[in-house]
């Protein structure tokens, strides 16, 4: 019984959804079963796998590029008070701009296509990752930095052997948040900038004959994949060399 508890809310929600559709007789809103049939139809037409792969492909590239640039950037800025004083205000101004506001500029620079979408995901992931790395550097215990210096480490060695491992636990939390944002953004980007992927599926299903069952099927898939991504990131927190950052002692 206990093991079913997490699914209880889901069952109630689906039941309420079904009931609401039956009672109101809304013509366009699909019932849960129609949505699930939609998933079946998309699978049968080979679109589901194709679109999921397309979305994940864009997220992977945008996110990994952001990781590669944002983490060294955040560490470098975090370690230099001067760089921080210069760059932090800029970051704080850029950060609240929704990545979606960049869509016109993305299309202007990269045209309609994968590059635009990847660019938007890059932007969406870059800021949370850079800010996390920057703050995490500040939280490195000075005692550990001093120990590194005492053992004769150069600045580069200190970063590799002390700063980086010290910030990984916080970084993983930032990576989880950034991936969540990236997954939100890819759907939006695909609605405008490309003609494949789960975001495109949703817009396309509506435009091509009000197929709201497919719209909701797409939404369900987005939710499911989002959970899977988050669970995968959570597993990172269990790694032996980062667990100290989450448990006391």
């Amino acid at each position: 019984m206990r093991r079913l508890t997490p699914f209880l809310g889901l069952f109630v929600f689906i039941a309420a959804w079904d009931l609401a559709v039956r009672l109101t007789g809304a013509p366009l809103v699909p019932s849960p079963w129609e949505a699930f049939r939609g998933i079946g139809e998309l699978t049968a037409r080979g679109l589901l796998v194709k679109y999921v792969v397309a979305s994940l492909f864009r997220v992977t590239w945008g996110y990994l590029l952001a990781l590669v640039f944002a983490v060294p950037f955040g560490i470098a800025v975090g370690m230099s008070p001067r760089a921080q004083a210069t760059i932090n205000p800029l970051l704080q101004v850029l950060r609240p701009i929704s990545p979606l506001a960049w869509i016109p500029i993305a299309i202007l620079w990269f045209g309609v296509g994968d590059f635009s979408a990847v660019f938007l995901i890059f932007l969406a992931s870059f800021f949370p990752l850079a800010v996390t790395a920057m703050h995490a550097v500040h939280d490195v215990d000075p005692v550990h930095l001093r120990a590194g210096e005492n053992f004769g480490m150069s600045r580069g060695e200190l970063i590799a052997h002390v700063v980086l491992p010290a910030i990984v636990p916080q970084l993983i939390v930032g990576m989880r948040i950034a991936l969540g944002i990236a997954w939100l953004v890819v759907v939006a980007a695909e609605m405008i900038a490309v003609s494949s992927g789960l975001g495109f599926l949703i817009v396309d299903a509506r435009n091509a004959g009000n197929r709201y069952d497919l719209v909701v099927a797409g939404m369900v898939m987005i939710g499911v994949i989002g959970i899977v991504l988050d669970l995968a990131m959570r597993r990172l927190e269990k790694l032996d060399f980062v667990r100290w950052g989450y448990v006391e002692g």
């Binding site: 215990d141 005692v143 550990h144 001093r146 120990a147 005492n150 053992f151 002390v162 491992p165 010290a166 990984v168 060399f241 980062v242 100290w244 950052g245």
Partner: peptide, 14 residues
């Protein structure tokens, strides 16, 4: 010449 701090000087990730 090595400086020994209170026990929080060990690296928790190692």
């Amino acid at each position: 010449r090595i400086f020994v701090f209170q026990e929080r000087g060990v690296f928790p990730w190692l």
